[in-house]
């Protein structure tokens, strides 16, 4: 397989992430988030949430929660070092909280090129469902693959 338009419509399974309070607290630490809503269960409950809420961009990691998140890119001939993140979109349907188990899947929505093929774009639609089968978020990920001129494999 190669990164070309023949991939459009291809479906692959994604990752599964049991969201823990400690993982959300680490995410808050890493992103400089000091709002207790994201680290203190009592603070979250006072604002009407059942537990620590999943922050808006944390969902991106659900689809990476597998032994080799870059494996499918290698399968289509992409050197992970050539990757850039082009665009990222989240559409929110329902809240998710610590304790939820989130699962992603992915379908290739588009593949195209710019600059005479020097940049290739891979667009995937990634719905994320919770343990009840409810879709909580839909992501649209655009990855860019640049040319790695003169670089050894």
């Amino acid at each position: 397989m190669a990164l070309d338009s023949s991939l459009i419509g291809q479906v692959r399974p994604g990752g599964t992430l049991l969201v823990t309070r400690s993982r959300l607290r680490l995410f808050a630490k890493a992103t400089g988030q000091t709002d207790p809503l994201f680290t203190d269960v009592e603070a979250a409950r006072k604002k009407g949430h059942p537990d620590l809420p999943v922050p808006p961009t944390f969902y991106f990691g659900v689809d990476l929660e597998m032994p080799d998140a870059l494996g499918y890119l290698r399968e289509i001939g992409v050197d992970p070092r050539a990757l850039l993140h082009g665009e990222q979109e989240f559409t929110y349907h329902q809240m998710a909280y610590a304790g939820d188990e989130l699962t992603s899947s992915s379908v290739v929505a588009d593949v195209f090129e710019k600059k005479g093929g020097a940049l290739k774009f891979l667009v995937t639609e990634v719905p994320i469902v919770n343990q009840h089968g409810t879709t909580v978020v839909t992501m649209r990920n655009t990855l860019v693959v640049r040319e790695l001129a003169g670089v050894k494999a």
Binding site: R23, F27, K29, A30, T31, V62, L64, A69, P80, L83
Partner: peptide, 12 residues
């Protein structure tokens, strides 16, 4: 920290 917290372990 962000690599571990976000799940994006890309070495670059």
């Amino acid at each position: 920290l962000f690599a571990g917290a976000s799940g994006d372990h890309h070495p670059i």
